[in-house]
């Protein structure tokens, strides 16, 4: 469904990602793991089109989207919930969700989806008319995910969804992702929290210093203690 081939991302002369190839098939959850600064965020940002790609090609459902800007890519059904959530702090929860659906013309469908996600994330219903900055970190993360879902993505990329959240909330978010998978959503999850991420994933990739160092079946990766030690260090707990 999503196919990155030989992607390089560059900041000035510094290469953040060096020739990485990865694939996400329909219906999968795939984890993209690795230590801080490994280039994970750069890779997904490039995939969605908010960072320019210095080399390689990106295909989404068979279409070449390498040079397409984010707004086009999102409209095609590939969305990113960015690192640090980036909810619109001064806008209300309602407005955030509404903006998430900006590419859609079906008013009734949008209204139905809002209802659906308010059921899925009841706290957002309670805070519906509050500004997003009054929400807690976990609530903001849920809003960010719901906001991304409002565009009805076919493939959702989540950049560090567990960052800075209490373990209980992290569990809740990973459960939600499994629910979404059951509904047929494909996901690519960037995580430092390797064990939890692999727990819900079908496959995993490990990135270190901008290069791909491992790819394989998620179950096998969790079981391989050597692998976890070597690349994911503090991730195993």
């Amino acid at each position: 469904m999503l196919e990155l081939s030989n992607i390089t991302v560059q900041y000035g002369v510094v290469k953040a990602v060096r020739g990485v190839s990865l694939k996400v098939e329909k219906g999968e959850i795939v984890s993209l793991l690795g230590p801080n600064g490994a280039g994970k965020s750069s890779l997904v940002s490039a995939a969605v089109g908010i960072l320019p790609v210095a080399g390689g090609t990106i295909r989404f459902e068979g279409t070449d989207i390498t040079k397409k800007p984010a707004e086009t890519v999102v409209a095609m059904g590939l969305t990113l919930t960015p690192e640090g959530r980036r909810v619109f702090a001064d806008l209300s929860v309602a407005e955030n969700l509404h903006l998430g659906a900006a590419t859609r013309k079906d008013r009734d469908g949008v209204a139905a989806d809002i209802e659906k996600y308010l059921k899925m994330f009841p706290i957002l219903g309670e805070r519906y008319h509050q500004t997003a900055k009054t929400l807690s970190g976990g609530e903001q993360q849920m809003l960010a995910i719901a906001r991304s879902l409002m565009s009805r993505p076919k493939l959702l990329m989540l950049d560090e969804p567990s960052l800075g959240l209490a373990p209980r909330i992290v569990d809740r978010i990973f459960e939600l992702m499994l629910d979404l998978k059951r509904d047929g959503l494909t996901m690519l999850v960037v995580e430092q929290n390797a064990t939890d991420a692999l727990g819900i994933s079908d496959r995993g990739y490990i990135l270190a210093s901008g290069s791909l160092v491992y790819e394989g079946d998620a179950k096998a990766m969790v079981d391989s203690e050597d692998l976890m030690e070597a690349y994911l260090g503090s991730g195993v707990h």
């Binding site: 800007p69 999102v74 969305t79 960015p82 980036r86 619109f88 903006l99 590419t103 906001r147 565009s151």
Partner: peptide, 13 residues
Amino acid sequence: KDFMAVRLMGIKA
């Protein structure tokens, strides 16, 4: 406040 996030909503800059 955050133009990048707006583009991530599929909204044309």
